[in-house]
Design a protein around this nucleic acid. Sequence first.
DNA 1: ATGATATGTTGAAAATATTCCACGAATACG
DNA 2: CGTATTCGTGGAATATTTTCAACATATCAT
Lengths: 215, 215
Amino acid sequence: MLKIFHEYDDERPEDRDMDQDTEAAFDVGARLKQLRLARGLSQRELAKRAGVTNSTVSLVEQNHVSPSVSSLKKILDALPVSISAFFAGDEPTQPKPFYRADELTEIGDGTLSWGLVAARRPDRQMSIIHERYPPGADSGEEMLEHDGEEGGVVISGRIEITVDGEVGVLGAGDAYYFDSRLPHRFRNVGGEECVIVSASTPPTFSDAGQERHHA
Amino acid sequence: MLKIFHEYDDERPEDRDMDQDTEAAFDVGARLKQLRLARGLSQRELAKRAGVTNSTVSLVEQNHVSPSVSSLKKILDALPVSISAFFAGDEPTQPKPFYRADELTEIGDGTLSWGLVAARRPDRQMSIIHERYPPGADSGEEMLEHDGEEGGVVISGRIEITVDGEVGVLGAGDAYYFDSRLPHRFRNVGGEECVIVSASTPPTFSDAGQERHHA
DNA sequence: ATGATATGTTGAAAATATTCCACGAATACG
DNA sequence: CGTATTCGTGGAATATTTTCAACATATCAT
């Protein structure tokens, strides 16, 4: 869970009756600042969009005040970030070993040329795939349905994805994530190649037919 | 997004202005009351556990005030419910398949600006992250070790990855995959930003709170 | 009925958040 | 060097919140 900072910089944490919980602190100010800077906004610019004063943004970022929910909402709306997402932020899974680009296992069907990461790894829990969809590429009329979950991030180009009847056209930086049992389909409707990095679990593609049991 | 009520009595949780989102107003008071009653607590009992007065609980439940983040946190801690989970009803906790680039939940520590896909999806089996390492970024001297597996594909830039003593420098198109229990580290040793799309399982980063334990 | 306890509400005081306005630092430009 | 602009900060005034201390209602036992 989180602990909300409420002290002034020069005060010590014990000054306040921060009681029982020992949980990790959640730094509202730092998180807000991070999100603001990630969007290249100044305090004033953000405040203007949010309908609050720059002072408010400043004080909140310094944890000199604990904003009211309504104020925080105004500010986050301007980013935009939901309150839920705001507080969902925590330590990420630090990412990290090594497959040369030409070492990725090709799993295309002729038209497609995809690279599967760590294809031969036994008991692998995920399939991470570097996908390249040429213009017009289509996973097919009949929707795909299989166990597991899959998601990915679009690197370049544009792709139309249909999930359970819902259609979205994603561009660079956009992402998707859904339950693979829902009928789905991928189509490159643009004029250029579309590149995606995807992950799915449990691994649908297994080079060595090494399926692992999964509840 | 959500609408925080700040009006008195006669106001009701209705849409007032519809911005780009299709979401309805978020009734803080009603949600709090719902959670409190679900646990069979009186306002006074909850207030006592939370370290606030019963008045505060009463006023908040009636939407007569918009509580400060610190107050709301105190109250929710006593339930216990995370702030993120509290507002989760707002965001499509339902399987939302598509995520605009700016909808990815930002994670990172200020220098980093990463986007987590489907952060608030309940019982998500993977964390897919769009990572951006600025020049010089380093996951740290001390190696990371945690349960699960992780992998990813380098989109641009160069990154040095150390896994269990083995060091590799990856460039665009290269990939990695390893057991997260092995000590590992990431460093952008190049002069330009390095972009990676990674996936890890199980998700170390979860929108925790009052959720059921899952196997 | 009467008192004892528990509930949720609210006026007024106290505490805190937010605004208004100005300051100093940094940058750019003549 | 001066001046304009933008930045983040913070004092003092204002607005909102939280607390304190009732109050009204309801239930239950005596």
